[in-house]
Simulated assay, not measured.
Amino acid sequence: MRLILLGPPGAGKGTQAQRLIQKYGVPQLSTGDMLREAVANQTEIGKRAQQVMDAGQLVSDEIVIGIVAERIEQADARRGFVLDGFPRTLAQAEALDRMLAERDLSLDAVIEFQVDEEKLVSRIEKRARETEEAGLPVRKDDTPDVFRRRLDEFRQLTAAVGPFYRKKGIARPIDGMAPIDTVTGEIDAILREKVSV
Score class of each variant (00 low, 15 high):
Ile45His: 02
Glu117Thr: 08
Ile72Val: 14
Glu112Val: 13
Lys119Met: 08
Met34Ser: 09
Ala11Asp: 03
Val121Trp: 00
Val39Pro: 00
Ala40Cys: 01
Ile72Lys: 08
Val121Ser: 01
Thr43Leu: 04
Asp141Cys: 12
Ile67Tyr: 07
Ala109Trp: 04
Arg36Asp: 09
Glu62Asp: 15
Leu100Val: 09
Ala55Asn: 11
Gln74Met: 15
Ala11Thr: 03
Gly46Cys: 05
Val64Leu: 15
Leu29Glu: 01
Glu117Phe: 11
Leu96Gln: 02
Ala69Val: 07
Arg36Pro: 11
Glu132Gly: 03
Arg36Met: 11
Arg78His: 14
Gln51Trp: 00
Arg123Pro: 00
Glu73Thr: 13
Val121Lys: 03
Ala93Gln: 06
Gly46Arg: 01
Ile45Val: 15
Arg79Asp: 15
Lys119Trp: 00
Gln92Asp: 08
Leu96Lys: 04
Ile72Glu: 04
Ala93Pro: 08
Gln50His: 03
Ile65Trp: 04
Ala109Leu: 11
Val26Pro: 05
Pro8His: 02
Tyr24Pro: 01
Leu35Val: 08
Asp97His: 12
Leu83Tyr: 01
Ile21Gly: 05
Ala109Gly: 12
Gly32Tyr: 13
Arg78Gly: 06
Ala93Arg: 10
Ile45Gln: 03
Ala91His: 11
Asp141Leu: 08
Phe81Leu: 11
Val82Tyr: 05
Glu125His: 00
Ile45Phe: 05
Leu20Cys: 09
Lys126Ile: 01
Thr89Asp: 05
Phe86Ser: 02
Asp84Lys: 07
Ile111Val: 15
Ala91Trp: 01
Glu102Gly: 13
Arg98Tyr: 04
Glu73Asp: 13
Arg123Gln: 07
Gln57Met: 12
Glu62Cys: 03
Thr143Cys: 05
Lys126Glu: 09
Glu70Ala: 13
Gly25Tyr: 13
Thr43Pro: 01
Ile111Asn: 07
Leu29Phe: 02
Arg103His: 13
Gln92Met: 13
Thr15Phe: 12
Arg103Met: 12
Val59Asn: 08
Glu94Trp: 02
Gly66His: 00
Phe113Trp: 06
Val110Arg: 02
Gln50Glu: 14
Val82Thr: 06
Arg36Ser: 07
Gln92His: 09
Gln28Phe: 04
Asp76Ser: 14
Ser60Glu: 13
Ala55Met: 05
Lys126Leu: 12
Asp141His: 12
Gly85Val: 09
Glu118Ala: 11
Ser122Thr: 02
Ile21Ala: 04
Leu107Val: 10
Gly80Pro: 06
Gln114Leu: 10
Ile111Ala: 10
Ile124Thr: 01
Asp84Phe: 10
Ala49Asp: 05
Asn41Asp: 14
Asp84Cys: 09
Ile65Phe: 06
Ala69Leu: 02
Arg103Asn: 12
Ser30Pro: 09
Ala95Leu: 14
Val121Tyr: 02
Ala128Gln: 10
Ser30Asn: 12
Ser122Arg: 11
Pro87Cys: 10
Met99Tyr: 07
Ala91Thr: 15
Lys119Thr: 02
Glu94His: 07
Met34Cys: 12
Leu105Ser: 04
Leu90His: 03
Asp61Thr: 13
Gly32Arg: 10
Val110Trp: 00
Asp116Cys: 03
Ala101Asp: 13
Leu58Asp: 11
